[in-house]
């Protein structure tokens, strides 16, 4: 669905996106992670033909962007950075404008507009102009815009921005539902939890470079250690000498091949176990390990001696 080769964007001396090779497959919910300023939005804008790449190529739905924009973009729904609408018009009027721009016939327009408003939970909204909308309502309207043309691919930049927890849940359910119905979702976010709950594949951007691209399942694979929770930590340590890699007053991390055998061994020795589970990598650990410092952090250079 999305494939880039060596995609690069330089603004003067600053390289915003550096040699990006993205691979988003049909049916994915692709979580595009990165700190603020890591180049996510620039990438999204290049995919949509808003920003022109310095070098490299981008293919969306199998066609070269931005050249094939006229054929590609009608099948793509997008929320870029933040929603935007004509402030003096109502949400409905804004959607009608976009329906007309997309070439929708006047007949059936009201039905299409009501349909997307229902989907994002704005079905009962009144005629108030968009400038009187709350942040959450604007976000929902932005999603309605993206869904208007029944896209095969959704490109969403921070779609849950400004929503309360219930709203976030609703949008997540909506995206999951759309994905189940065959829509590929490219979800750019700096919220790890959001991506962890929805994504099937993850790409991590760090200072313009793609440092990781893998399925979520692989990223969250077992670490090979087993987490044991027990009130008898001392007894367990004595029994498993050499295999315990870490412990505190109520639990241990043990490196063993056979978890069932470990369980039998502990119980056999009279060690009481309240919890036993294979330890898994968390997305946070993986992402932080792959990334450098926070993107919006600018440390003072340490002055070198003798210079």
């Amino acid at each position: 669905m999305i494939r880039t080769h060596g995609l690069t964007k330089r603004y003067g001396a600053i390289t915003a996106v550096d040699q990006l090779d993205l691979d988003v497959r049909e049916g994915d919910v692709y979580g595009f992670l990165g700190a603020n300023g890591s180049g996510k939005t620039t990438t999204v804008r290049m995919l949509l033909g808003l920003v022109l790449a310095t070098s490299g190529t981008a293919e969306v739905l199998g066609r070269a962007m931005p050249r094939a924009g006229r054929e590609v973009l009608p099948q793509v729904g997008a929320l870029v950075e933040s929603p935007a609408a004509y402030p003096r018009l109502s949400g409905r009027a804004n959607l009608r404008v976009h329906d007309a721009l997309a070439g929708g016939r006047r007949r059936g327009r009201a039905g299409r507009v009501d349909d997307v408003l229902d989907r994002v939970g704005l079905g009962g909204v009144d005629q108030r102009p968009v400038r009187a909308y709350s942040l959450g309502m604007r976000q929902r309207l932005g999603l309605a815009h993206a869904l208007l043309s029944q896209p095969r691919l959704l490109v969403l930049d921070e779609p849950t921005n400004g929503l309360d927890p219930q709203g976030i849940r609703e949008i997540r359910d909506l995206l999951t539902e759309l994905n189940a119905a065959g829509t590929t979702v490219f979800l750019s976010s700096h919220l790890l939890a959001e991506v962890e709950q929805m994504a099937t594949r993850v790409g991590v951007l760090d200072r313009g470079r793609l440092v990781l691209q893998e399925s979520l399942e692989v990223l969250k694979r077992p670490t090979g250690r087993t987490y044991v929770r027990t009130p008898d930590v001392a007894a367990a340590r004595a029994l498993l000498d050499g295999q315990v890699e870490a412990y505190d007053e109520a639990s241990l991390l043990v490196r063993v091949r056979d978890v069932a055998a470990l369980n039998a061994q502990l119980v056999g020795a009279g060690v009481r176990i309240s919890e036993l589970a294979p330890e898994k990598h968390t997305l946070e650990d993986v992402v932080l390990a792959a990334s450098s410092a926070a993107g919006d952090r600018f440390d003072r250079d340490v002055p070198r001696v003798g210079s």
Binding site: L48, L50, G69, R70, V76, A84, A85, P87, H98, L101
Partner: peptide, 14 residues
């Protein structure tokens, strides 16, 4: 300035 330009261009309007 309104931010609507990007949404016009991705609709797409050439």
């Amino acid at each position: 300035q309104q931010g609507t330009l990007r949404y016009l261009l991705v609709r797409p309007v050439g």
